[in-house]
Design a protein around this nucleic acid. Structure first.
Length: 273
DNA sequence: ATGACATCCTGTGGATGA
């Protein structure tokens, strides 16, 4: 099975590009983040035409996560147990955002995750990010307690660069989110809970990234960040035969073609379970 | 660089991203 994750930065803008890649890359399951649309707005038809079922949760123009699968899509779960809530405004009641979606595809429990950005170290959103990661760790650890042999893939945009080599220049990130000790500890806690990065062994750094800022010619200058990850439970990790970051999909296209997302897809191949 | 770029909205500038 070929399983991928991709922060698409608006599915309505990029759907043709995404489904084109699905076909070319022979992907069985694709987790998407930042679809930036409601469920009603999600363009399911192009996926269906290629034989993919789609599950999506999107409440408004922000966030939004989806899973497209051509190997089954069962037990769809919107949000994880204990997922922290958020409200951007004092007069709006806090609610769970569209940042987590689970489904079982071809026997693998897949979670499409869009971890909160954090904004700045002083922002309430940063506290929310850390709480979100802690809750995810606790809940995911529970899944493995219930069934240690379950193949689980926690995939998506983690908005954390776990190592200094995961950003183009660590000195440019001093005092900023994505590289703080607390965020890295939260990411490492996933590993301690037995969910390991199954892509890094196939794509060692330095200079290996999954995201490049749209501004300042970041891609051309090789100024990126490794922030999109596929974490696997032990039963998932032992089946990984190949992994890659599909940097080609971040490359600026020809004139007239659909512009790339600022993230590249991350892909793993799994042996039959 | 309160910047640049890109995406969204019952838009025409603000929120969000990292």
């Amino acid at each position: 099975m070929r399983l991928a994750t991709w922060n698409v930065n608006s599915i309505r803008t990029r759907v043709d590009r995404v489904v084109d890649w699905l076909g070319r890359a022979d992907v069985d399951v694709l987790a998407m983040q930042e679809t930036k649309c409601t469920d009603a707005q999600f363009p399911t038809m192009p996926f269906a035409a290629l034989g993919y079922e789609v599950a999506h949760v999107g409440l408004n123009q922000w966030n939004g996560v989806a899973i497209a699968s051509r190997v089954g899509l069962e037990n769809i779960e919107v949000g994880f147990e204990g997922q922290p809530t958020w409200s951007g405004k004092p007069d709006v009641e806090a609610a769970a955002e569209a940042r987590a979606l689970g489904a079982t595809c071809g026997g693998v429990r897949v979670w499409s995750l869009y971890v909160p950005n954090g904004r700045t170290l002083e922002d309430p959103h940063y506290r929310y990010k850390l709480e979100w990661l802690a809750a995810l760790r606790d809940t995911a650890a529970g899944w493995l307690r219930d069934d240690p042999a379950l193949p689980i893939a926690l995939v998506g945009d983690w908005n954390i660069a776990p190592q200094d080599d995961d950003v183009w220049d660590i000195t440019a990130f001093e005092g900023r989110t994505h590289v703080s000790e607390a965020e890295r500890a939260a990411f490492d806690a996933m590993t301690e809970a037995q969910f390991t990065d199954v892509v890094r062994p196939f794509t060692p750094g330095p200079g290996v990234y999954t995201y490049w800022d749209y501004t300042r010619l970041a891609f051309q200058k090789r100024r990126g960040m490794r922030i999109d990850f596929i974490l696997g439970s032990p039963a998932l990790a032992e089946r990984v035969t190949h992994a890659e970051i599909v940097k080609d999909e971040r490359r600026p296209g020809k004139k007239g073609s659909i512009a790339p997302s600022d993230h590249a897809p991350v892909l793993v191949e799994l042996a039959d379970g």
